Simulated assay, not measured.
Amino acid sequence: MTSKMVVQQPQPIMYTQESDEWSSGICDCCQDVPGCCCAFWCLPCFTCITSRDYGEPLCLPLLEIFSGWIPAVTMSMRVNMRQRYRIRGTMCRDCVISTFCCACSWCQMSREMKRRNVSVVMVGAKNT
């Protein structure tokens, strides 16, 4: 049995997004009808699932009942997502969208996560 020396390790494939814009508009509900229906019929459930899928605590969005007029959790998730995915925008716009289009904002964030999250498979070496 011959053994081969590994000269170069396999590198993970990284997804790069060329655009610095949201991949869908704030009102593009037809791009994910089941998700938008879930958000329409049970927004608290939808926000909790989206928050968990994003890597935040499951029940974090439920804290918005204590936040007052501006939905702080929605706004902070939106700002964080823009920074993570390098999407252009302003905190002022995020505040307006989070306040007046809360359900649409969560749907847009969910669609963005689905489009940008690509599984990275790391190939490990076997110990013999």
Rank of each mutant, 00 (worst) to 15 (best):
M81S: 08
R78T: 07
C101F: 12
S24N: 10
M1G: 12
C45H: 08
W106Q: 00
C104H: 09
C29M: 05
D32P: 01
R115F: 14
Q11D: 15
S110T: 05
V33Q: 03
Y85D: 06
P44H: 02
P34C: 01
F66T: 10
L62H: 00
I70T: 07
C107I: 08
M77Q: 14
C95Y: 03
A72L: 14
S3I: 04
S3A: 03
K4V: 08
I13V: 13
M122H: 12
R116S: 11
R88P: 00
N127Y: 11
R111E: 15
M91F: 06
C92K: 02
E112F: 09
V96K: 00
M14W: 09
N117I: 15
I87H: 01
W69E: 02
R115A: 15
Q31S: 03
V120A: 06
V120N: 02
V79A: 09
P71I: 09
I49R: 11
T99R: 04
F40A: 02
T50Q: 10
P12M: 14
C38T: 05
Y85N: 05
E21T: 03
C95V: 01
N80Q: 10
A72V: 14
G89V: 07
I65M: 05
N80C: 12
W22D: 05
V96I: 10
M5R: 09
G55R: 03
G55H: 04
Q9L: 15
I26V: 08
V7M: 11
A72T: 14
M1N: 03
S23G: 14
T90W: 01
K114V: 03
C102S: 10
L58P: 01
G55I: 03
I87Y: 07
P44E: 06
